[in-house]
Amino acid sequence: MSRTAVSPMLVRLAAEKATGALLRDHGTLYLVDGRVVHAESPAAPGVDVLLTTGGRLPREGWDEAVDRAGAHRAVGRFLVDSGRLHGGELEICHLGAVFDAAFFALSPTSGPTRFRYGVGHWFGTVRPVSAEAVERETVRRRELLDAVWPYASVDTAPVVPRPPSPGQTVGARQRSLLAAADGERTPAELARLLGRPAFHTLLDVRRLAAAGLVETPLDPVPAPPPPAPLSALPVEDPDIALLRRLRDALEAL
């Protein structure tokens, strides 16, 4: 893997087997012995949203787990030990949330990157992932989005459905996404509403946009062009029409 590192600092911290929190503009990665054990981003729904939205866990069940085990940094473990979740469910849900948040946390930024040694997360360790795997997956996800539909403007704009062509169908997951798209909600808001990872929602929105089922907003709203001196000439100016006719006549010779 000779690709440029997504975060040179993460590579260095992994090499020195550091433990602590890597703070970036769009999220935080938590490391234990250089491996990623947790990630958070304001752009990505947390494990609590993923588990409670679909009704897998009542909100009180989650809150109680945080109350009882948060101080020991063992909320994940507690959810399983207390019978609220099964081990496989926790791993599937938590890994999904970690890669999701890491994708946003590692997004390109000009802001500062800081590392706080020794800081842990109250959720605790479930299934550590190598920093290299997280970086690789983040790069793969960026490339995947652009391979599907290379217009990043759909990632942050409100999702506006378009009518399907005759006979055009979509799968159940995309159908429920379109049903929740009221023309105002952004992909991140839809992810939270549906209790789905945010990257999955971005990917589905790009797929829908590629299929013409979601509007693709024009890339950054173009700045108003500076008033050009030529614009003073009205197109319908009779002299211009005369000149065009003259040119056409000359070309026809």
Binding site: L50, G54, G55, E89, I92, C93, R173, L194, G195, H200
Partner: peptide, 10 residues
């Protein structure tokens, strides 16, 4: 396919 009672696709 693995069926979970939260939203997933595994």
């Amino acid at each position: 396919f693995v069926e979970t009672s939260f939203d997933s696709s595994v």
